[in-house]
Computed example of a mutant assay.
Amino acid sequence: MEGLVSGKKRTYDEFRSNMPSGVATLFDELRRYCLTLGKNVIEDIRMHRIVFAKSIKFRSFADIEPQRDSIIIKIKKDRKEPEKEIQIKLDDNLDEIKKLLLNAYTSIH
């Protein structure tokens, strides 16, 4: 099933190459953080964004999309709750965002 449309799944480096450098640096930090949340984190690199999920059940907890000078994160803790959309600027502190990501990851069963 991998790469059904293009014949090849995109790599993170290919995805990252289309971002402005400041956004790419911020995106790298968020990506590294999401991947350290647990051994069962799955990264799904899509055309314009990356979705992070917990386990093979693919219960997504973060949908991260780079913009020209910011990043939009959609955080989802539960299927019954609406997702929370946050726009992060290049000079924003990520401490609160990381807490929200951790909370979303740990709330998925």
Rank of each mutant, 00 (worst) to 15 (best):
residue 42 I to H: 09
residue 60 S to W: 10
residue 57 K to R: 13
residue 77 K to P: 04
residue 83 E to V: 07
residue 21 S to E: 07
residue 42 I to N: 08
residue 64 I to G: 07
residue 88 I to L: 12
residue 73 I to V: 15
residue 49 R to M: 14
residue 36 T to M: 01
residue 10 R to P: 15
residue 29 E to T: 12
residue 6 S to P: 04
residue 48 H to P: 02
residue 18 N to Y: 06
residue 18 N to F: 02
residue 31 R to S: 14
residue 2 E to D: 07
residue 20 P to Y: 01
residue 84 K to G: 14
residue 71 I to N: 09
residue 63 D to M: 10
residue 98 K to E: 01
residue 17 S to W: 02
residue 35 L to H: 01
residue 41 V to T: 09
residue 32 R to C: 02
residue 4 L to C: 04
residue 1 M to K: 03
residue 76 K to P: 08
residue 41 V to E: 00
residue 7 G to F: 03
residue 81 E to W: 05
residue 22 G to T: 06
residue 58 F to M: 12
residue 55 S to D: 15
residue 5 V to F: 15
residue 93 N to R: 13
residue 36 T to H: 00
residue 46 R to K: 15
residue 19 M to R: 01
residue 80 K to T: 06
residue 61 F to Q: 01
residue 21 S to G: 09
residue 104 A to R: 00
residue 91 D to Q: 14
residue 5 V to Y: 08
residue 60 S to K: 09
residue 77 K to G: 10
residue 6 S to F: 15
residue 52 F to V: 06
residue 108 I to E: 01
residue 27 F to N: 10
residue 50 I to M: 13
residue 64 I to L: 04
residue 52 F to Y: 08
residue 107 S to K: 12
residue 9 K to N: 08
residue 26 L to K: 15
residue 56 I to K: 08
residue 73 I to K: 03
residue 56 I to G: 12
residue 9 K to V: 09
residue 4 L to D: 06
residue 25 T to K: 12
residue 102 L to A: 01
residue 73 I to C: 14
residue 95 D to S: 11
residue 50 I to W: 06
residue 27 F to K: 09
residue 89 K to W: 06
residue 89 K to G: 06
residue 59 R to Q: 12
residue 11 T to D: 04
residue 39 K to C: 01
residue 103 N to I: 00
residue 34 C to N: 01
residue 98 K to P: 03
residue 43 E to M: 09
residue 72 I to G: 13
residue 27 F to R: 10
residue 62 A to K: 10
residue 47 M to P: 00
residue 47 M to W: 14
residue 75 I to G: 12
residue 66 P to H: 06
residue 11 T to R: 06
residue 53 A to E: 05
residue 53 A to V: 00
residue 44 D to W: 05
residue 104 A to E: 01
residue 106 T to W: 00
